Simulated scan of single mutants.
Amino acid sequence: MKKEEQIRVGISIGDLNGIGAEIILKTFEDSRMLEFCTPIIFASIKTMSFFKKHFDSGINFHGINDLSQVIEAKVNVLNVWKETIEIAFGEEDLKAGEYAFKSLEKATEALKNDDIDVLVTAPINKLTIQSESFNFPGHTDYLAKELGGNSLMFMVTDKLKVGLLTDHVPVKDVPEHITAKLIEEKVQTIYESLVKDFRVNRPKIAVLGINPHAGDNGVIGKEDEEILKPTLLKIREKGKLVYGPYSADSFFGSKNYLNFDAIIASYHDQGLIPFKTITFGEGVNYTAGLTKIRTSPDHGTAFEIAGKGTADESSFKAAVFTAIQIYKNRKEYKKLTKNPLKKATKKM
């Protein structure tokens, strides 16, 4: 039986031709990481030994064939496959995508079965991973199907948290996706996540407009006036501190984001461009709203530098720490809600 403080962190390997393995190695070469968690890499000893040799890593692996064989304070590698795989750094390869999915599928199964406590995913290539089994725009949609819940892409750091109304949707299709129902669902998901996952007592949330200048009172598009404003007013009347729509072009440059616990962007680039500009290398992609915890770094496979040993592991390491902290926060939240008296005493 594992110690309560030794959180099991499952790690899917991502695209084998990208930087995933490198940032995993660099993260756990720091032996202090093993004081916080027990990592389990879903890949194979053969594959990880190749990466260890290529990157001249001093890391020691503990190879296992079953999750019952996990040893705490070791970097465990579960043999999801046993065959030798040819690695071609920086190349888009359907075979690499196939193994990325094998790793993700097995790790997700372990998460569902509580064999791991949290999941941290290394970057996939969204093209090469496509198959009959994986027909999704990315991790978020796949995990929503497998784990259940109202999933939401939530980009987080200590000081900045950005959620999305729509994520991997073509820009031309964004307005038709944004409905009152969707807005209410996403606000609720972020609100609950801030309370349960990040221990924010009374969240204050800003929502960015759909159109330039939030529509300029209907001069530049009607969606902000007809959909966003009345829906946000309705939510606010129910007691939630949700404000907007704000003009997106000046919101971040004016530092207005510092006045809120989270910001909801209407579409992918509206939220992720400022987020990555402000926090690149520190940010974490967290899938809020699921029954289980999954995080990932805020970048992709970086094929252009794959295999060169120059990848920065900071975001991946942050993803590990964020997953661990959310796991602890959720446990604490459950304890407090089961014992309201303890919660009330703590506030006094």
Rank of each mutant, 00 (worst) to 15 (best):
M1C: 09
E4K: 13
E4G: 02
I7L: 01
I7W: 00
G10F: 04
G14Y: 05
N17V: 12
G18M: 06
G20K: 10
G20H: 10
A21V: 11
E22T: 12
I24D: 10
D30G: 07
R32Q: 10
R32T: 14
C37Y: 01
T38A: 08
I41L: 09
I41S: 09
F42V: 09
S44P: 13
S44Y: 14
K52L: 04
D56E: 13
G58H: 10
F61N: 13
I71G: 01
N76S: 11
I85T: 07
G90A: 07
G90F: 08
D93H: 05
E98C: 11
Y99P: 07
A100L: 01
F101W: 08
E105M: 06
K106Q: 15
T108E: 11
E109H: 09
D115K: 15
D117V: 05
A122Q: 07
I124E: 07
F134G: 06
G138A: 13
Y142I: 02
E146Y: 01
E146F: 00
L147I: 15
F154C: 13
K159G: 12
L160A: 01
L165I: 05
L165E: 06
D167H: 10
H168G: 00
P170S: 03
E176Q: 15
I178L: 06
E185S: 11
K186L: 00
Y191G: 03
E192P: 00
K204E: 02
K204G: 01
L208A: 04
I210W: 01
N211G: 12
N211W: 06
N211R: 10
H213K: 12
A214C: 03
G218L: 04
V219K: 12
V219F: 07
E225H: 04
L233H: 03
L241N: 14
P245T: 07
Y246E: 00
S247R: 00
F252L: 13
A262P: 06
D269T: 03
L272N: 11
L272W: 08
T277D: 05
T279Y: 00
Y286H: 15
A288R: 11
A288D: 10
T295H: 03
S296Q: 07
E304Q: 13
G307R: 05
T310N: 10
A311H: 12
A318V: 03
F321M: 12
Y327P: 02
K331M: 14
K334G: 05
K334L: 15
T337W: 06
P340M: 03
K342W: 09
K343L: 15
T345V: 08
K347P: 00
